[in-house]
């Protein structure tokens, strides 16, 4: 296992103020996941479910309230990996908003050389060579190096963001909604680029998105998050064919597909629970068709799904649900084109 996360929890707020205690928000609760070298873990969920908080903890931009993150078996709490180098030399991050992740008053060259200078301690000659390699890797022309961010389109800026992440020669890239701000035609360019880079450089990805089809197309493993928790994990190739958690099922039923009239939105409006006052049981209970009394009593743990004779991969799926979806392939399976 290259990256292992155990019982990761992050709470915001809390602490005392003059007039009492500040309320606590549970942004991420008790996430355990792991990922092998060279694989892509897709994390999918709707806004506010804790995806970004999770991602920021992986690169050390945020510190967990409790739980651990291990990189090749070494706890990264101190901000360093096993060899003593800063964590960011091994794990890098690609931001959602390509424009705001570039300093408007720095040239692309200045932005790209910073990690080489500070993390890799390269000299000027090495840096020049690396710059050329990088620009080539992300398909940008070298003369862009001396321009400022406002001169670039969203897609180009995102490629620069990727180049900046790659500059430190990391093994893992955490990509937080890297294509959500882009138009679909540019989105495809960036997704293809990411696939090429991964193959060429042997990278490991943690890819975060709210878009099911993007996640499905890029992931080896998928984790579905709801309200700060992972509710289902499984292999990327089968998970959306055979969803087990009712929320995964709902996501799939809600995603529009060109050429089909298939959405069955929930009949009544549904809302997330209050993050300041989470329910004692399953957070999805209020929207769930399978909910029963035990669901509201305690939080369902993420357990191995019941093996399934028809599905050889079923042993790899985990689901946090007391009454998972039964197999009804015609209703919940994604559409066949």
């Amino acid at each position: 296992m290259l990256l292992e996360v155990e019982n990761l929890t992050r709470q915001f707020g809390g602490g005392r103020t003059l007039t009492g205690r500040r309320p606590v928000v549970h942004a991420v609760s008790d996430i355990s996941l792991s990922i092998d070298e060279g694989r892509t873990l897709g994390v999918v969920g709707e806004s506010g479910c804790g995806k970004s908080t999770f991602a920021r903890m992986l690169v050390g931009l945020d510190q967990p309230t409790s739980g651990s993150i291990r990189l090749a078996g070494h706890d990264i709490r101190g901000g360093r990996s096993a060899d003593g180098r800063p964590l960011s030399a091994t794990v890098q991050y690609v931001f959602q908003d390509p424009v705001s992740s570039l300093n408007p008053r720095k040239t692309i060259r200045q932005t790209l050389t910073a990690p080489m200078r500070h993390l890799l301690k390269m000299d000027a000659g090495q840096r020049e060579r690396r710059l050329d390699e990088l620009m080539d890797a992300v398909n940008l022309r070298p003369e862009f190096l001396d321009r400022y961010p406002h001169e670039f389109s969203g897609g180009q800026a995102q490629r620069i963001g990727i180049a900046r992440a790659l500059a430190a020669e990391p093994r893992i890239l955490v990509l937080d909604e890297p294509v959500s701000a882009l138009d679909v035609s540019v989105q495809a360019q960036v997704l293809n680029l990411l696939a090429d880079l991964k193959r060429e450089l042997g990278l490991t990805y943690v890819f975060i998105s709210h878009d099911l089809s993007v996640i499905e197309s890029i992931s080896d493993e998928i984790a579905v998050m709801y309200f700060g928790r992972v509710v289902e994990t499984g292999p990327g190739s089968t998970m959306f064919h055979r969803p087990r958690h009712p929320y995964t099922g709902l996501l799939l039923r809600s995603a529009p597909v060109p050429g089909q009239r298939r959405i069955h939105g929930e009949p009544k409006p549904a809302e997330l629970p209050n993050p300041f006052d989470p329910p004692p049981g399953c957070a999805f209970a209020a929207r769930c068709e399978n909910a029963r009394d035990d669901c509201r009593a305690s939080v369902p743990p993420l357990d191995i799904a019941t093996p399934d004779a028809a599905d050889p991969e079923s042993g790899k799926a985990h689901v946090a649900c007391y009454h998972p979806l039964a197999e009804k392939p015609d209703k919940n399976a994604p559409p066949t084109p």
């Binding site: 540019v186 197309s217 994604p334 084109p337």
Partner: peptide, 23 residues
């Protein structure tokens, strides 16, 4: 045609995305 083809579609994991070059 390209606008439709450059978007990944649920259930078609193996399809190569047909990106539109340029802007």
């Amino acid at each position: 045609r390209k606008l439709i083809d450059c978007v990944p579609v649920l259930g078609e994991q193996d399809r190569q995305l047909d990106a539109i070059p340029g802007l």
